[in-house]
Design a binder for these strands. Structure first.
Lengths: 153, 153
DNA sequence: TATTGTTATACTCTATAACTATA
DNA sequence: TATAGTTATAGAGTATAACAATA
């Protein structure tokens, strides 16, 4: 929280620290994913599709808090890598269902392990209680700001 | 921390939550800064220069954990907005000292207030203790990873 | 006309590498 | 040759807006 000292400094803001750590964590993760030729944004899409048979781009956009254009671009890349399939809906042909290809479905658990590893590298030294607290606080902020989140519950 | 359930999900990683919240906080901040025609990266440079008379680009790069190229590009933009001045060093003319212009120095406290406001919007509901704990944990992670940070202390 | 999706364009942020100037 | 700085290029990530197809 900013202390009321003349102009508050960068380090007085929690946002600064979150951005700093988050950037490092994401960058580190992106290096791990690069070995599989996948980016962080692509990983998010792949993991989201893992739990369902198929999903429309707009549903994906809603779940991930992204625009349809952004999803479309990501889908395009993943289709190019043969990690996704796309099929027009049967009833309403405006819906183009996205789904994991066999290769994509095989890949997700491996990427998941990389995510586990990356998380452990940065947060493994924290106690279980501290990790739980940070997660709880972050989820609370998300909820209070009515940010769109993957509704797991 | 990832629970050992087959492939861990996005929300099982603390990195996911940090990135999610951090992105929202930064985006919200960027909208506030846009009213002053300044970006988040530019704000960081301006605030860093506020506490000193002048600083060499390479010193700035070290402090902020960025490359010289990135700093150069930011400086270029800020010079174009007349928020910075650049002068070759007297002794060693390879050093081009960057400093705030009068307009830049006037602007920093206003941007600082926006940063305070933004931080309060997202973290104001947390208790003082929770905020302190998150900050302490983040700083600890930074320290353990020997990440380059503005050495305020 | 409203909705879904794609495409075109643009911009921030950042990196790497080539290049220039100075020492 | 080593260092400081700039410039060129590239790519991720994301948005907005124009557009096409379907309902």
């Amino acid at each position: 929280m900013p202390k009321p000292i003349s102009p508050s400094g960068l380090q007085d803001h929690l946002g600064y620290w979150l951005r700093y750590v988050s950037n490092q964590v994401s960058h580190s993760f992106s290096l791990k994913l690069a070995a599989r030729d996948v980016t962080v944004a692509e990983w998010v899409v792949l993991r989201e599709l893992y739990d369902v048979d198929a999903m429309a781009p707009s549903a994906l956009a809603d779940k991930l808090g992204m625009t349809r254009g952004a999803i479309s671009k990501l889908a395009e890349r993943l289709l190019g890598k043969s990690l996704l399939t796309r099929a027009p809906g049967e009833k309403d042909r405006r819906y183009h269902a996205l789904a994991l290809s066999d290769a994509g479905r095989t890949l997700v658990p491996e990427l998941s392990a990389l995510a586990d590893q990356n998380d452990a590298e940065f947060f493994g030294d924290l106690t279980r209680e501290d990790r739980a607290m940070v997660q709880r606080l972050m989820m609370g902020i998300v909820r209070r700001h009515a940010l769109r989140v993957t509704p797991i519950d």
